[in-house]
Computed example of a mutant assay.
Amino acid sequence: MRSWAESKLSSELLKVVDRAGYKTPSPIQMAAILLGLQQRDVIGVAETGSSKTAAFENEAEGPYSVVMAPTRELAQQIEEETVKFAHYLGIKVVSIVGGQSIEEQGFKIRQGCEVVIATPGRLIDCLERRYAVLNQCNYVVLDEADRIIDMGFEPQVVGVLDAMPSSNFKPENEDEELDEKRIYRTTYMFSATMPLAVERLARKYLRNPVVVTIGTARKATDLITQHVIMVKESKQMPRLQKLLDDLVDKTAIVFINTKKSADFMSKTLEKASYRVTTLHDGKSQEQREISLEGFRTKRFNVLVATDVAGRGIDIPDVAHVINYDVAHVINYDRTYKACREDKYRYYMLTQSNSPVPPELARHEACKFKPGSIPDRPPRQTIQFLRIDYDV
């Protein structure tokens, strides 16, 4: 499949794809959509930002579909994209996320819908309260599966998958012919990496899946330059401001450990005349949406966030992602989805007497003294990590 015309989608759906603005299928879409139309289970391993979302939206035309995402923000973005298709196809979509009234969400489900897009925790709550029943679910999607597991939602995911009927599983024997009159459960699992917990879920709930790998699994996206800057405590905030002064018309995300620290930094930067907003789980859903929309529209050019923003937001023109004294290294290939930009710089700005996070200590560059990292072939420069001591 090199173009949408070769996709075997119906003419009606092709018109919807065009209206939604998907001009050319991405590599993951080329493979996953055709496999889904054959009722094959799919494991898509692709770097974040590789247009996986539309790969499963096109398959959401069964009697009932469930899409699970790790965060509210990502679930709502999936909902926005899905509605573009649903509007023209007469499909009703309901988003089930935290921070909103579960009673209202349950009422929407009971009114009838074909597609539910949810975070695992809120969806399991709806199932336990009998607001939702999944006995007609034939299509299930786990988007950003590794992040879902990282956030501790494996038990909730298992609970949701176990609530679906087992009678519509495909035969375990790959050679056994499928009954053309039946609709089997089709499962899509998309992930930037494949940790053991994700593989465990795949073995239990997917039947003879086709693994589609775009790029290299467990490898950071090719568009990130990484820097570590170690400074005295008194110079840490001035160095941050120096990085922010380089933004011009672009934006920056600053990750910090706690909600309290995020609010304090925001006030400090506001006093220094930066246009700042914050994002953390201490804010209501409405406040989080207002912050993100202001950041997208560049009413704010600096987003100070806890790792709730580590994945699942889609923002153009992000120039810097700055890890400010965070106790662990934010996974930058995941953050890339937030940064819809040709290239961005990832900085870890930490105090010179701080312990080195284990993720950094294991990095290849730590084998060398500062400034002595040998040259590498051009294609490897995206893994380059420069360590500066600013004292």
Score class of each variant (00 low, 15 high):
Ile229Thr: 04
Asp342Asn: 15
Leu269Pro: 01
Lys343Cys: 11
Lys271Gly: 04
Lys271Met: 14
Lys267Val: 12
Lys283His: 00
Asp245Met: 11
Lys283Arg: 10
Ile253Gly: 08
Asp249Leu: 09
Val329Ile: 11
Val228Ala: 07
Lys260Ser: 11
Asp314Glu: 02
Arg239Ser: 07
Thr350Pro: 02
Gly282Val: 06
Thr277Ile: 00
Leu279His: 09
Ser352Pro: 00
Ile330Phe: 06
Phe264Thr: 08
Thr251Lys: 14
His320Leu: 06
Leu292His: 05
Ile229Glu: 10
Thr335Asp: 05
Asp314Trp: 00
Val228Thr: 05
Val329Tyr: 09
Asn331Pro: 10
Gln285Phe: 06
Arg340Cys: 07
Asp314Ser: 00
Ser234Pro: 00
Val302Glu: 05
Leu269Tyr: 01
Glu341Met: 13
Tyr336Gln: 09
Arg345Ile: 15
Lys242Ile: 04
Leu247Met: 12
Asp281Phe: 03
Asp333Ser: 15
Ile256Trp: 03
Ile315Ala: 08
Arg296Gly: 08
Asp325Cys: 06
Ala319Glu: 10
Ser352Glu: 13
Val228Gln: 00
Ile322Asn: 11
Arg311Thr: 13
Leu349Arg: 08
Gln285Cys: 03
Lys232Ile: 04
Asp249Ala: 03
Thr251Glu: 02
Leu269Met: 04
Met230Tyr: 07
Val308Gln: 05
Ala309Glu: 15
Glu270Asp: 14
Tyr324Ala: 01
